[in-house]
Design a protein around this nucleic acid. Structure first.
Lengths: 209, 209
DNA sequence: CATTAATTTGCGGGGTACGCAACTTTTCTC
DNA sequence: GAGAAAAGTTGCGTACCCCGCAAATTAATG
């Protein structure tokens, strides 16, 4: 029925993944080059040598395909968290795992800020962007709950914590995207995670007013 | 050119707002009654006595109209924050303002959880739901920055804090929507805001492991 | 191999979103 | 107030999207 994740992965499954990946990459590439509006589903489908109908079997919109790369960090993030030593605090573990998971892709390329901005700030993409992060958030919440102990009293807090972590990620990314002279993304992310963990004490200045 | 927000509001502006409101209400009502999929733009337009084309002058999709009520809390929230006494901590002020802003609408009606759930969990609505919250978040960030002092060093933290607050709202609402036997929304929200302010210390149990 | 199960694809239909160009209504100005 | 100007509404046309369905193609299985 559902594919055994432990199995060596037959041709079938590999093809499917490859197709999916090809489509999302093509979607992102084309959207960067020509602008979201100027890319039709047909263009993407043609670019990867598949029918438009098939594209819609994989993604329910081109925007979803464009934002698909975000969702793919799920695995990375969950694994990173699982590998944190048990001695660490929850925040230490989650924070490090998050920075690791996003860091493994390297600092995002400064050269394409312009393009990324016009892409991600486009209304039709923004919704999918947020949905993608919501999916990651969901996975993260589960992973946190797993680590903290799955008591029902932890469930809510785990979800909140995951939401907060994703908030930090989104805010850091947003800052990188908007603020011309901002620090590198990973640095900002690290700072924000620490702020969040401490309840943002440093707002209103370091010298508690 | 752009309408003066201080002016007494001419007939023109009032009509526009009324129309907008009518449309968003009709959209929400119809979607609850018949299900999102079963409502066409034309239905909504007809319900408020306007042409479909006009509907699209106001909203760029029916989903946006459905989620419009969320965005309308902007004003409420900003005003609530402005009216918090200066003696209060940032978190006190923001937390109270948030609970107030959402509380002024009363505890959401338990009877319609079913419907609300099937509505908001629907993929096509979820994106707009998140976008709506993102807009509120933006306004909240500005309001926080205004209160904390608009130094450039505060800008990032203000955005993070706004994001965290909205995370609490979304998580509380989500919990209300999903967990059958959850506490009342406003209560959960209050708890989560306190947790967030403290960096969620109570995860992994009250007795710090 | 021959079955069986999963994927791809074309077709068709119901909708959506928006530019454009009349046409109305409110607002402005004298 | 009357006429000009600005803003809003509407119908039409177009391009595009999303998905159900059924036939054709391709992998998996014994």
């Amino acid at each position: 029925m559902s594919p055994d994740p432990a199995a060596p992965l037959g041709l079938r499954e590999r093809k499917k993944r490859a197709a999916r990946r090809a489509m999302s990459e093509a979607a992102l590439k084309l959207a960067m080059e020509k602008g979201v509006e100027q890319v039709r589903v047909e263009d993407i489908a043609t670019a990867v040598g598949v029918s438009p109908r098939t594209f819609n079997n994989y993604f329910s919109s081109k925007e979803e395909a464009i934002c698909s790369f975000i969702v793919e960090r799920q695995e990375l993030l969950r694994e990173a968290l699982r590998e944190r030593p048990v001695e660490e605090t929850l925040w230490e573990a989650v924070g490090t795992a998050t920075v690791e998971a996003y860091g493994s892709l390297g600092e995002p390329n400064r050269g394409s800020v312009e393009l990324a901005r016009s892409l991600l700030l486009h209304p039709s993409v923004q919704g999918e962007f947020l949905k993608a992060h919501a999916k990651v958030e969901q996975v993260l919440a589960d992973a946190i709950l797993e680590r903290a102990g799955a008591g029902p009293e932890n469930a809510l807090n785990a979800r909140l914590m995951a939401a907060i972590v994703e908030s930090a990620v989104k805010t850091a990314f947003f800052s990188w995207l908007i603020d011309e002279g901002s620090r590198p993304f990973l640095e900002t992310l690290d700072v924000l995670l620490h702020e969040a963990a401490a309840g943002i004490p440093s707002l209103t200045g370091p010298d508690q007013k």
